[in-house]
């Protein structure tokens, strides 16, 4: 997937005219897990709605497998099946009588056979950890976290090659956040689909994404492997973004004279490095 010089202006020609994103370009490769971060109003949500042709760019193009997704109606329809988009608080889009039928909505629109739909619903439910017995229950009887899972399953059931999620963990407790991320990673590993996760949380981004795209005022400020992006700590802070907790702890430890090596941005990396140092000392 390739984005070229994407610009979007809202309410063009009226006093309310605002440029949401300006000349954004990047490429997302097959099977990549990328995080889009940026503070409120940096244009993240506008950007991702372009990626499956929900809004048309004012300027620039979005290419998927080399084809301009806005070029024709067929392309737009095709891209919506291949690029799954999960909105913020997706649980508010549930509408069917049963969880099963809600998850089946996407595949049904794709025009699949009954048998295929059934298979996909069960598979999608499996990915997000919804038990079989819940499939015949009304989605409105589920708990908040389960609703969120059901809604995500509704998009996963379309078996997209690129799965885009806008703040999938917003408003969930830590256990719920971790659960959903684990579900998404299992989908990624099983199908090789690329994930693009929009998030506020640097900790989550650091933990799961191998690549980060940092948005600031409608432009891409930083783009690269996670470790590299976090080495620009100062710039991130300037953009109003927090550095991951693990990096903060590592920095503080360094100030106290602990000789930590390498770029540390997750708790796992921090733990390894500390164990390495301790191990080293015991050996010496």
């Amino acid at each position: 997937m390739k984005v070229e010089g994407l610009t979007h202006v809202y309410s063009q020609g009226t006093p309310f005219q605002t440029t949401a994103i300006k000349n954004v370009s990047f490429e997302l490769y097959k099977g990549q897990v990328a995080a889009v971060i940026g503070h409120t109003g940096s244009g993240k949500s506008t950007l991702i709605q372009h990626l499956n042709a929900l809004i048309k760019p004012t300027e620039g193009r979005v290419l998927f497998k080399g084809r301009d997704i806005n070029a024709s109606k067929e392309n737009m329809k095709a891209v919506r099946a291949d690029v799954g988009l999960v909105f913020q608080y997706p649980e508010y889009q549930l509408f069917e009588e049963t969880v099963y039928r809600d998850i089946a909505f996407g595949p049904k629109n794709q025009g699949l056979s009954e048998k295929e739909i059934d298979e996909r619903v069960h598979r999608a439910a499996g990915f997000v950890g919804i038990e079989q017995r819940y499939l015949q229950v009304s989605p409105f009887e589920l708990s908040g976290g389960q609703k969120r899972r059901a809604a995500i399953a509704g998009v996963i059931a379309m078996m997209p090659e690129v799965l885009i999620l806008d703040e999938p963990m917003a408003g969930l407790d830590p256990a719920g956040r971790e659960g959903i991320m684990a579900n998404l990673m299992s989908y990624h590993e099983a199908t090789g689909a690329a994930l693009l996760i929009v998030t506020h949380s640097m900790d989550d981004a650091a933990r799961y994404a191998s690549r980060m795209i940092v948005m600031d005022h409608g432009t891409v400020a930083l783009d690269g492997p996670t470790a590299e992006v976090f080495s620009h700590g100062e710039e991130l802070t300037k953009m109003g973004l927090a550095v991951p907790t693990a990096s903060l702890i590592a920095d503080r430890l360094r100030q106290l004279g602990v000789p930590l090596e390498g770029s540390i941005y997750t708790l796992d990396l921090l733990e390894k490095e500390i164990l390495r140092l301790r191990g080293g000392r015991e050996n010496a």
């Binding site: 709605q49 499956n52 929900l54 329809k77 919506r80 099946a81 799954g84 988009l85 909105f87 997706p90 889009q93 909505f105 996407g106 629109n109 794709q110 509704g154 998009v155 379309m158």
Partner: peptide, 9 residues
């Protein structure tokens, strides 16, 4: 938008 993303027309 959300339903369109799921292929609704």
């Amino acid at each position: 938008s959300a339903q369109k993303a799921r292929g609704a027309q």
